[in-house]
Structure formats: C-alpha cells, structure tokens
Nucleic acid binder design. Structure first.
Lengths: 216, 216
DNA sequence: ACCTGAACACCGTTCAAGT
DNA sequence: ACCTGAACACCGTTCAAGT
C-alpha cells in the first residue's frame, strides 16, 4: 500500500532484502531475550521476529537452533573471561586472586542466570563440539588454573594435584551458583543473607581444603 | 468396529474410558521417557500416548506440564532418599558415612542424568512451591546434614558452622555431578579416568577443608 | 550468497462435549 | 469425577522460490 517510497539511498532502510550482518544481530537478539525473560523464551522464530527478519532466515547462518545456542554460549564465555580477568587483576595476594577467580564465576552466574545456564548446561556443550566455543571455555577456565597454580606454586605439588585442585575449585563455585540460582536453598540456606556472603564462606572451606593439600 | 466385545469382567480391558490410576501411570511413563531418551523428549502428549490415553487426559490430574514435572521430581527425590540412606548404612565410620552421603548424590546423578537434572534444575523448583516436593527434598538433604553433624559433632561448633559445612558439602557434590554430566570437563578432566574416582578426590579436598574448620 | 513463504510435524493449553 | 476431540497459538525444520 504505502510502501512505494523506496529510493536508492534510503537513510533508514526499513527492511532491505539482505540484512547485512544477520549473524551478529541474531546473537544480540538472543542475548537480549535471555536477559529479559528466562530461557525457554528464546526461540529462533522469536529472535528473528525481534530483528524484523523472516522466521527461516537464521537457519542459513546457524543451520539449526543448536547453532545459534553455540554462538550465544561462545559469546557468553568471552564476556565471562573479560569479567573474570578484570576481577582477578583487582586482587593483590595469591589467595585474593584465587578467591576473585571463584567469586567472578559466582557473580557472573547470579547476574546473568539464563545465559549462565545456557553456557554451562546440558543443552549445548554435551550435544556438540565447536572449536570456537571450546577455545572460549579454555580461556575462561585457564584463568582459574593460573590462580590455583600460583596459589599452590613452589610447594612441590605435581600436575595431578594441580588438576585435582583446579577441578575442586571449579566444582565448588559451580555448585554454589547453581544451588543459589535454582533456589534449591530452601532447607539449607538462610535466604535473608546475601548470596555473595554465603558463597564467600563456602569458598573459604574449599581454600581450607587446598591448604591441607599444600601441607601434605 | 470390532470393539463390541465388552463383557463386564474384561481380563485385559484394551481401553476402558476411565484409566483408573492415570496419575501414577503418567509419572511412570514420564520417568521411562527420561531414562530412555534425554529430557526434551518428555512431553505431556508423548507420555499420554505411550499409555494409550488421550492427549489432554493428563491435564485433569496435573493441571499443566509443570504439575507433571513436580510429581516426577518428587518421586525422584524419594528414590534418591532411599538410595542415599542405604549407601550411608553401609559405611562404618563417621567420615565414611559423610563420604557415602556425598558419593550417593554423585552416583545417583550419573545413573539418572535426565531425572537428576529435572530434580535439581531450574525448570521445576525455581518455578513452583509444592509441599510434597519440598518435604522429599528436605528428607534427602537431611541425611547429609546428619552425616555432617555426626562428623563435626562434639567439637563445639555452632549451628552456623554446621550450616556452612552442610552447604559446602552439598555444593561440592552438586558441582561435581553437573560438571561430569555436562561434559564441561573437556579442559580439566582427564576423561579416561572413571568419574567416581575424580569425585572421590574432590570430596577428599572438601573433607580436608572441613577438617580445618574442625580444628579452628 | 542471502533471504522469503508455504508447508509439515510437533508442542502446551482451552474449551465444549462425552461417559 | 474422569476422559475425549477439535481447535488455537506456538515451535523447529524442509524445501522451493525469490533477489
């Protein structure tokens, strides 16, 4: 009807046939959906609709829904990596840096629940192996490994002990966030206390355990 | 057509109008779907189809899909409770019982991934408060609390310390299972080692941390 | 190379109707 | 009280067709 106005140099082209950078736009759109509502609100069709593109356009770029989820999770790990790096840089002792690395994990999860669950949940990483995603994960996890190595360094501990320690630290932080996020807390957590405080305490127990390793 | 054969005492009534105990049958059906395929394969329609009932029949009993999930999760926690109880009973020292309580959590998760994720994931417990479900959770978690209390008992530790310790133990076991399940292990876990062994080690680190609390 | 539109098989849920 | 059947609005994905 009134769609006749289509000069060659449209300042704000309302809907050109080719989007240009649909891939990145979709990741942004998906990220926005995750932040706004929970996951489950994230659908290919919805994300496509929100950026004014056809329902099937994304399939060209991502193949299927899982492809989009992989891209979103990868972006998530990159953001987390930056965040964790910054947090670690603020600390001034080896123990402080280890605590910062662990707390960054907790805080990122609490701040971005849906994205965090997508990143660490079974929907993505247990279903596909994507090189860019794995690299992003390695980077983010590497920061923790470094902090552990620094904390336990020069005590004559072998590679195996480092592994064990890093995995313990990761499992601990992962356990804390997911429990706090899923409100599985009901019986055990006194919920009027701030979650960060609870997390700090649990991390304290773990550090105690690492200290015991140190001495052994 | 050939459905004229309907005497009063039908030995195997192929499809009577009223199922009788549709509620329990649906929970069974859902449980079977979770064990067979992952979650995501679990749909109201599918579970209903599998027991030869109309697609909308379950809604009368569960209200909506979440209602079914709640029922399934509750049953899951009851089974886990029995399993954990039995595992604890096999141990003969206070530390052994604590380890058993934690390992039971890990082993249950590894044995029933989809059910475990339903029980502990965000789909159910963060969306609804059901009394039967909460009671089942309390029972299962109570076993861990008892083991912790026994392990740290008589050392002059207060309620707060017990809380902290129980939460630490829970977070640790929860972190281990989810990491093992989601194969987030890639960079950190040497995957040729049996997961139980890895879990035992991490639990060892935690126990070390609890030991430090004990002394403090 | 990139995107649209119609179509298919699946959902969860509602609602009137059957037993 | 318990269950069916048709209908609605949503999915993901395929496939032929458009630019």
């Amino acid at each position: 009807m009134s769609e006749v106005v289509e000069p060659s140099a449209d300042p704000i082209p309302s809907r050109p046939y080719h989007h240009g950078n649909l891939r990145e736009a979709m990741v942004e759109s998906a990220l926005a959906l995750l932040e706004a509502n929970g996951p489950g609100e994230l659908s290919l069709r919805r994300a496509a609709r929100d950026i004014g593109v056809s329902q099937t356009a994304p399939l060209y770029h991502f193949g299927n829904k899982l492809g989009l989820l992989v891209a979103v999770a990868t972006e998530g790990f990159r953001r987390f990596h930056s965040f964790r790096k910054a947090r670690i840089a603020e600390a001034h002792t080896t123990e402080g840096r280890l605590r910062a690395a662990m707390m960054a994990y907790v805080e990122f999860g609490l701040a971005h629940p849906a994205l965090f669950r997508l990143m660490t949940g079974p929907e993505v990483r247990s279903k596909v192996r994507d090189e860019a995603l794995e690299a992003a994960v390695r980077d983010a996890l590497g920061l923790l490994r470094d902090c552990i190595a620094e904390y336990l360094g020069g005590r004559g501990l072998g590679e195996d002990d480092m592994h064990r320690a890093a995995l313990s630290a990761w499992a601990t932080s992962h356990g804390i966030v997911t429990i706090l996020l899923d409100r599985q807390d009901s019986p055990l957590v006194e919920s009027r206390r701030p979650p960060q405080e609870i997390a700090e305490e649990i991390i304290g127990v773990l550090i105690g355990g690492l200290g015991a390793m140190r001495a052994a």
